[in-house]
Nucleic acid binder design. Structure first.
Length: 929
RNA sequence: AGGACUAUAGCUCAGUUGGUUAGAGCGCUACCUUGACAUGGUAGAGGUCCCCGGUUCGAGUCCGGGUAGUCCUACCA
């Protein structure tokens, strides 16, 4: 299957490998649980079945996949449960809009036919999101894919509803709900978005009954006066005390309503008199209950005025009615004044229309009872939030939770298992037949199933266990529940996380997950929320495959209601992406997500980052190319058993990769993917590529080097590469797999895929402190020489002769062992010690500790430039020295700081004193020459 | 109104229990196509750690108070 590469391309081409590897992984069944002692499971937050991938998904899936691949490689029995959500309102709206385009409403079709249409749409478009999840490399177990409306999950939903009903935790009740007059359904509090808008405050005079004078009320909603039941004043408001208990005539309605006293009234606001409309305002409803006021509902379900209102207003839409009421009041001379007023307007999160408090019969979950154990589970640490601060948000909401309205007047969803007879008595059960049997209902009793469906979040709340076969006590349920971690955005903590916790604790007496990892929101480069209407959306797939500018523009401006907005979006898009978007590949995109995934903050998506990580992929690719060029068809000492000799560099990098493994392990354990990715980036680029590969060249390219030494270097090249490929694999699955296929066997690894190899465990025994110190010395010397070369503008090709001076025994030893490295990496013709007693030549100087590095100037270096350079360096060191002297001169510091801190500072001061002295001496010498 | 979070280089961000000269990437400057890589290499420039006060020998880090921004919850008709 694996085609043997004889030659790798010079640049990494992600498109050439990604799809191929994903297909193979899936076909071979690598995504399914592979056994193992410990179970590790994550349930995917089910995306809308007919939706498509956005940046938030990309971020979230990348995090989950890294965790899943990491644990799978650790040898855990790992399940990533996949599935999609039927998304009641959202999906129904899409299909309704499609019908609308053909001039049909869902009512024209009828319920059954309409639902057929929705299923049809699900079949057509349901593959989009799952295909996109695959493009991200997500190692989801597709063999277990579920859908919230499939048979098993629907059965679970019904079971839960019936159980909770019988336990008294679900009840039916009449009360005010948030009513969406466009969608004709109730929605929950969470689905209402209140935003400040400009409006007016109308002051109306209500004449006193049987007396002269009037009360003036202030309202933002004049039309609701048609349903007024009272006027309320504050009980201690002296202005109105004498009127409490009197009646006023409600204009336009020919009714008398009482003046009541209630603490709810704010004396300072408006006139201090509030009209009370119990059927159309949540606060008024409560006031009405306290005073036993009648509920007068004046709206139909589309928020037009109904027959409870005077004839003149019937059938008018609420806005038309508002105008009419205001006009009529003015005509009657009862409009006192109109003020501009900013108010919070509640709108439906789906429809965008103004929500009406509306009196209806609905089904509710008694959330208060369920919340208690759910609060306790977080308090006692059974469930932990990462970052922890979200627990406060959770507690605040849970401690003041309202009952959850779960019925929706929609067609697409789980139908409520309740049947009504003609008297309105209802029976809850799993089917009409079951209900008849249970309640001994005669055949002539006509039963009709409840038309409503359940809130989508009802089925989502059961997700962690319903996907595993509940209510059957399946093997998977025993094995994988509770799940290990939930990865989600803060925006659905209330919608989903809290409800999962409540439902799961109640139904299974166990938590749904042990940890909730809450990630931030992905915003655009300016920090704006990405949204279609703003036209700033970036499709993750476009970052993977690239997209031409024209295609991007038309994608962003398609279906815009306002043409001027489209023009603006087009302009902004052309400015931001003048050449469209380049193809960066999945690995680069994923790595970008990780690098930005520090906890507790939103992420601004900067296109420059992904470009940098695309380059990183290319770096990895070329490093592997170099290693393979030098190791393929060569004796790498991995299988032959022949002797190998490890160089200093070999021992150094072998330890460094272990340090990296330890850092990555710690970072992932803390969900710090940014730190994990950074540790790998720095190790691979700055240590392995920049230093180790360069240090390998003097050995591999030296004809005089021994066979053992060459074997040792090849062995280390390939082994260390193989280790960091595995370390990196959870984050960059494709490129690591592609390279590992060639590298693994050379490193003595067998197996069909890197996916199922063991994750490297940090082994501190491999860390060679002496080798690390030696290489640090070597780096310091090389950097000193390069710095002179760079600042003195010495041509890079020019080989230098370098003299060393003032070294101790360590330096002597190190030079002896490393002169070859030095020659190669610093491009030296020769390096040697200045003989004792010999005159110091005219030279540029650098320091590595106390060691003095002299680059003789002989025609190479401008004397004045070196003087300037030395002065600058001396200035820098003296600055530091002054600071240190002040610190150590402070008796308080020397007395109170820990001894080791003081000692360290003293050491530093001495070193800097030495450095200044050396540099001064050198400066003096050069001046004199 | 209550609460949370954020403020560090031109930009995007790290900075563990307080203790080297506060770091990285991108961008910028100069030089370089040397046999893995110009999606590269080498060297450099660039910071009043938002402001004020406090604790401490010592504060980017801890405490208090401000300022600015983002968000959540609730909401005065």
């Amino acid at each position: 299957m694996t085609s043997r590469r004889t030659r790798m391309d010079k640049t990494f081409q992600p498109a050439a490998i990604e799809t191929r590897w994903y297909e193979e992984w899936e076909a071979k069944g690598y995504f399914a649980p592979q056994g193992g002692e410990k179970a590790y499971s994550i349930m995917i937050p089910p995306p809308n079945v007919t939706g498509s991938l956005h940046m938030g998904h990309g971020f979230q899936e990348a995090i989950m996949d890294a965790l899943i691949r990491y644990h799978r490689m650790l040898g855990d029995n790992t399940l990533w449960q996949v599935g999609t959500d039927h998304a009641g309102i959202a999906t129904q709206m899409v299909v309704e809009r499609q019908l609308e385009a053909q001039g049909i409403s869902r009512h024209d079709l009828g319920r059954e036919k309409f639902i057929e249409k929705v299923w049809q749409w699900k079949e057509e478009s349901g593959g989009t999101i799952t295909g996109q999840l695959r493009r991200l490399g997500s190692s989801l177990d597709w063999s277990r894919e579920r859908f919230t409306m499939d048979e098993g999950l629907s059965a679970a939903v019904q079971e839960v509803f019936i159980r909770l009903y019988r336990e008294g935790l679900i009840y039916r009740g009449q009360r005010l709900v948030n009513w969406d007059p466009a969608l004709h359904t109730a929605i929950s509090d969470l689905e209402v978005i209140s935003e400040p808008e400009q409006g007016h405050l109308w002051h109306f005079n209500y004449p006193l009954a049987g007396a002269e004078g009037y009360l003036t009320v202030a309202t933002t909603r004049p039309e609701t006066m048609l349903g007024d039941s009272a006027v309320a004043v504050h009980p201690e408001d002296e202005r109105y005390a004498h009127l409490i208990g009197r009646m006023v005539r409600l204009p336009l309605c020919d009714r008398e309503i009482p003046v009541i006293a209630d603490e709810y009234v704010e004396r300072e606001f408006g006139t201090g008199c509030v009209k009370i409309t119990p059927a159309h305002d949540f606060n008024d409803y409560e006031v009405g209950r306290r005073h036993s006021l009648p509920l007068i509902n004046i709206f139909n379900d589309d928020a037009a005025i109904n027959d409870q209102a005077p004839l003149a207003y019937r059938g008018l839409d609420r806005l038309a009615a508002r105008q009419q009421v205001v006009d009529d009041m003015q005509t009657l001379g009862l409009l006192d004044k109109v003020e501009d007023h900013q108010l919070n307007v509640p709108r439906g999160d789906r429809s965008g229309v103004v929500i009406e408090p509306y009196l209806t019969d609905q089904w509710y979950v008694d959330a208060r009872k369920l919340a208690k154990p759910a609060i306790a589970a977080v308090e006692n640490g059974s469930i932990q939030f990462v970052p922890k601060q979200w627990e406060n948000t959770y507690f605040a909401w849970m401690r003041d939770i309202q009952d959850w309205c779960i019925s929706r007047q929609l067609w697409w969803g789980h139908r409520i298992p309740a049947w009504y007879d003609t008297q309105g008595t209802f029976y809850v059960g799993e089917s009409e037949a079951a209900v008849r049997l249970e309640h001994a209902l005669e055949a002539e009793v006509v039963l009709r199933q409840d038309d409503d469906v359940l809130d989508t979040w009802f089925s989502s709340a059961l997700w962690t266990f319903s996907t595993l076969g509940w209510p059957e006590e399946t093997e998977e349920l025993a094995l994988f529940h509770p799940s290990s971690v939930l990865v989600t955005g803060f925006d659905i903590i209330f919608f989903w996380v809290a409800r999962m916790i409540m439902m799961t604790l109640h139904l299974r007496q166990e938590v749904p997950f042990h940890t909730v990892y809450v990630h931030g929101l992905v915003r655009d480069g300016e920090g704006q929320k990405m949204s279609k209407s703003k036209g700033n959306v970036i499709d993750p797939i476009d970052l993977i495959d690239g997209i031409e500018l024209e295609a991007l523009v038309s994608k962003r401006t398609a279906g815009m209601m306002q043409p001027q907005l489209a023009a603006k979006i087009e302009k902004a898009t052309r400015r931001q992406f003048p050449d469209g978007i380049e193809p960066y590949g999945t690995d680069a995109l994923r790595f970008t997500y990780y690098s930005l995934a520090s906890t507790g903050r939103d992420i601004k998506f900067d296109i420059g980052r992904i470009e940098g990580y695309r380059n990183f992929c290319n770096k990895i690719w070329n490093a592997a190319r170099y290693v393979l060029m030098n190791c393929e068809n060569e004796d790498c000492g991995t299988s032959s058993g022949s002797a190998v000799e490890l160089s200093l560099a070999d021992r150094w990098i072998t330890g460094k990769v272990q340090e990296t493994a330890a850092q990555v392990e710690r970072a992932i354990g803390n969900y710090r993917f940014d730190l994990a990715s950074q540790a790998l980036y720095e190790f691979i680029w700055n240590e392995y590529c920049d230093w180790y590969l360069e240090l390998s060249k003097p050995i591999l390219w030296d004809d005089d080097a021994s066979a053992q030494a060459k074997r040792g270097t090849r062995q280390t090249l390939i082994r260390v590469l193989e280790i960091w490929l595995r370390l990196l694999h959870p984050m960059m699955p494709f490129i690591t797999e592609e390279i590992w296929q060639a590298v693994g066997p050379l490193a003595g690894k067998t197996g069909p895929t890197i996916m199922l190899q063991a994750y490297p465990q940090a082994n501190e025994g491999d860390i060679d402190a002496r080798a690390i110190a030696d290489i640090e010395w070597l780096k310091a010397v090389i950097l000193g020489i390069r710095s002179i070369r760079g600042e003195m503008n010495i041509p890079p090709g020019k080989a230098l002769t370098v003299l060393l001076r003032n070294g101790d025994q360590n330096d002597q030893l190190r030079l002896a062992e490393n002169s070859q490295y030095l020659r190669k990496l610093a491009k030296l013709a020769d390096v040697s010690w200045l003989p004792a007693g010999a005159a110091v030549p005219m030279a540029a100087t650098a320091l590595a500790g106390e060691l003095e590095i002299l680059v003789p100037m002989a025609g190479l270096i401008d004397k004045d430039a070196e003087v300037a350079r030395l002065k600058k360096e001396i200035g820098r060191v003296e600055n530091d020295l002054t600071r240190l002297q002040a610190k150590l001169g402070n008796a308080a510091f020397v007395d109170k700081a820990p001894v080791d801190v003081v000692a360290k500072e003293q050491e530093k001061m001495q070193a800097q004193q030495q450095a200044v002295a050396t540099l001064q001496e050198q400066l003096q010498r050069i001046r004199e020459m």
